[in-house]
Design a protein around this nucleic acid. Structure first.
Lengths: 315, 315
DNA sequence: TCAATAGTGTCTATTAGACAGTATACC
DNA sequence: GGTATACTGTCTAATAGACACTATTGA
């Protein structure tokens, strides 16, 4: 049934193919009827979701601004393999949905949110990355505003929880080789919530020889994080750190109205460094629109509320 | 056999899992023995290679510098589907190789080159993107120096040929909507060699509403290009255009020794615009090392030869 | 009044683009 | 000498960081 429909569609799109015959004398229609999709072993395909949000934590001082934290949604595995460990939300791609649709569906199942920022990051295809069978997985990043979030556990999840994530550079090494150099960085991904702390150490190596180089990342230790998900998390953090410099991804973590201080804190928690306030305000001025609203009860001078300027990029 | 080995490996890596039992009372080992990988239909997985090189074309004037062109390797399909049309080199991922290894293998089969720049771009997972069966494909970009290239046809290829590629913005439209705006660009990907011209027009739409936006790309016409490969090509060109601004990818297209004018031409052909020479030289000064060699027989003032500075990024 | 943050103004150093001007080969 | 390209110097405008300064609230 499905096969027949496909043949018709392709036939329509490529009229000239109707008369072409291959080395066996078959037309495209005849070829497709005979095509045996089960001829080769096939891997399973899944999507894994990196759902981030920015979370304000109140500090016990009425004067002080709340502290901004970056959070990631993880699910405690209720099934083998990695039973009891924490994993990224995700699941198998159905045969009748695109991988982007699968990502959207998983996101909806976990957060009840549609229409939020969602982007494909990377496809993980190591042979032994899943002990069940050969599974290839595409990671997607989703950025959500805390205000509109609600959490619903998926069917293979005992528990879904937000973890505050920090990216700690433990060590950077540089050494010369005969033909180039070797750079070795080791970073810790720490995930913390009220009752659990997860941690993974990853070694990032850059090996340059002549005009070529090789980059590898290896898990040194992974405490409580399932599969190769600590690599996916490191990859996503790295993506955030670099993309925030030239794109508007920080705004996907903000509510509709926000202060420039809150926005700056989001930049700082992702980049892992303090930024000079005056320069920051000048630089993002073109990306925001000032409203005539102000914060209240701040314990100090109130702050103007801003909105994202959707047009900032369109000269 | 394979299953058993996996179980042992996972057992070793996750000692605490040995005693954990799931809701059916199974240990991880027992679960994995019972796991039926054939339970669900699975898509096929392939890799598609975007192999680029920079090619100098002599001009019939002894004084004039040769013109730099960007070239892409395509293969004329000898089999259904899309028999007789041109496609990116690629193939199925074997069950015992990672997708990165599959990309490296395909690259080696097509160009006889190993150890050249290779990076994953995007995974294409639309349900109907291949008329044979559900096929998910990951595109990889490879950048090669023309000097070290040799071409060998693959087994499903009647012919492998280099095409000069140009990226032509046909139209840009911006219009306001109630809640945001719509940006519509239409670009032509033209591929030309001595006896064939291929062309595809693609519509890129950016739809912004409130703080959210959606990007879509659609093939308007595709003349002689198989599958969704014109989308892959547009995606790769876009990637080149943006990444060349902050990374050292241009050098992957250069031979070991090159002039700054040649380098500038590579930037210009990728960006599709002329650059001011003085500013260009200042900006890339930190990425190159001047040698004491010069070009000869140029018909005009000779040019100093430079090498890539592998350390440029490592403060 | 003061603690804490919000927000602005100015100086300096850096850098990109504009553009003119000099240099040097080959015919 | 003329053509084409190689390469440099200088002016200007824009911008990031440094830093000092002012503004505004709640307790």
């Amino acid at each position: 049934m499905t096969n027949l429909w496909l043949i018709l569609m392709v036939g329509d799109l490529n009229l000239e193919n109707k008369i072409l015959r291959d080395k066996n004398g078959l037309t495209q229609e005849e070829f497709l009827i005979r095509y045996d999709a089960k001829k080769y072993d096939r891997p399973s395909v899944t999507v894994d979701m990196l759902i981030f949000t920015a979370h304000k934590v109140e500090i016990g001082n009425y004067r002080k601004n709340p502290k901004m934290e970056l959070q990631l949604l993880l699910i405690k595995r209720a099934e083998h393999p990695f039973l009891g460990q924490w994993a990224l939300p995700g699941g198998f791609v159905d045969m009748n949905e695109s991988i982007g649709e699968a990502a959207g569906r998983e996101l909806q199942e976990e957060t009840n949110l549609e229409n939020i920022y969602l982007e494909q990051l990377f496809t993980w295809g190591d042979v032994d990355r899943d002990p069940r069978t050969r599974i290839i997985s595409t990671s997607y990043i989703a950025l959500a505003d805390q205000a509109e979030l609600g959490i619903k556990a998926g069917d293979d999840a005992a528990d879904a929880k937000w973890f505050t994530i920090t990216y700690n550079v433990l060590q950077t090494k540089k050494s010369m080789t005969e033909s180039g150099f070797r750079g070795e960085n080791s970073v810790e991904i720490a995930l913390q919530n009220s009752d659990t702390r997860l941690s993974s150490v990853i070694n990032l190596e850059k090996l340059a020889a002549g005009k070529h180089f090789n980059k590898t990342s290896k898990v040194v230790s992974s405490d409580g994080i399932a599969f190769d998900h600590s690599l996916m998390i490191e990859n996503a953090m790295d993506w955030l750190k670099s993309k925030i410099k030239y794109a508007d991804i920080a705004f996907r973590l903000m509510p509709e109205y926000f202060t420039l201080s809150e926005l700056q804190q989001v930049y700082e928690v992702i980049l892992g460094e303090k930024l000079p306030a005056a320069a920051f305000r000048r630089k993002i001025a073109c990306m925001v629109i000032k409203t005539n609203q102000f914060t209240k009860d701040a314990g100090h001078r109130p702050s103007a509320l801003y909105k994202f300027n959707v047009y900032w990029d369109e000269k």
